[in-house]
Nucleic acid binder design. Structure first.
Length: 233
DNA sequence: GCGACAG
DNA sequence: ATCTTGTCGC
């Protein structure tokens, strides 16, 4: 268990969570180097960020590991807006793997279309056939956007890539146990449905690095969870 | 009152 | 993130 002290401030997520994530990676390096992931899926943004340096970049630099930013909501920066046009583009994402580029005003680019070469850095991705809401993938560290999008999609059994999802589930369970709280009901959300995985290739292997976090303010809202993950390409 | 708001 | 309410699919 850890206790987060820094408050959550949009644009400064890394300053709240990175110290704990970094500590976990370092512990892994020291105690279980064989389990060191080749890449981290980070719950948050990479270069899709106010200053082009979100938590996925932050963690990537500090760990020297390839990192992918996997956000569940669009961070509206650099002119990017979750407006009608954006929603229409989302609507046009038909199947798993479909994506479109997120182009910021700065021209510096934050995204590009799947498969097409361009200096883009982030994309809205339909991660699952049965999920309407996209994921917002951005380069974190040492990875191309194309690879980041493909990897993320390959990790999705449901909307949220399994490494992130499992870290989330496991950390919540850990907190629940440690607090002796009653079981939260299993919500039948209209969002996620059990469907098939991407591919059934033989050479599959994936490790998981749950990174539980928490905060312990009495009245303050915001029980925390996990973030980083790994996956073999 | 309204929009923003990674987690 | 968390919380509610409502809908739909299995």
């Amino acid at each position: 268990m850890v206790s987060l002290t820094a408050p959550y401030v949009s644009g400064f997520l890394a300053f709240r969570e990175v110290p704990f994530l970094l500590e976990l990676v370092q512990q892994l390096r020291e105690k279980e180097p064989g389990l060191m992931p080749q890449v981290l899926l980070v719950d948050g943004n990479g270069v899709l960020h106010h200053r082009g340096f979100g938590v996925a970049c932050h963690l990537g630099v500090l760990t020297d590991l390839p990192c992918v930013g996997v956000a569940k909501k669009l961070l509206q920066v650099d002119g990017l807006e979750n407006n009608a046009l954006h929603k229409e583009k989302i609507r046009l994402l038909q199947t798993r793997g479909d994506s479109f580029p997120l182009l910021g005003d700065s021209g510096t680019v934050l995204g590009m279309p799947t498969g097409q070469p361009s200096p883009s850095l982030s994309q809205a991705l339909r991660s699952h056939d049965r999920s309407t809401r996209p994921l917002y993938i951005s380069v974190g560290h040492k990875m191309s956007l194309e690879a980041a999008v493909r990897l993320t999609c390959c990790c999705c059994r449901f909307r949220i890539p399994e490494p992130v999802r499992q870290a989330d589930i496991c950390s919540r369970e850990h907190i629940r146990k440690s607090l002796g709280l009653p079981r939260p009901p299993t919500p039948r959300s209209p969002t996620q449905r059990p469907v098939a995985c991407p591919r059934g290739d033989s050479g599959e292997s994936s490790g998981e690095v749950p990174s539980p976090q928490r905060q312990a303010d009495r009245t303050a809202p915001g029980g925390r969870r996990s973030t980083a993950q790994c996956q073999v390409g």
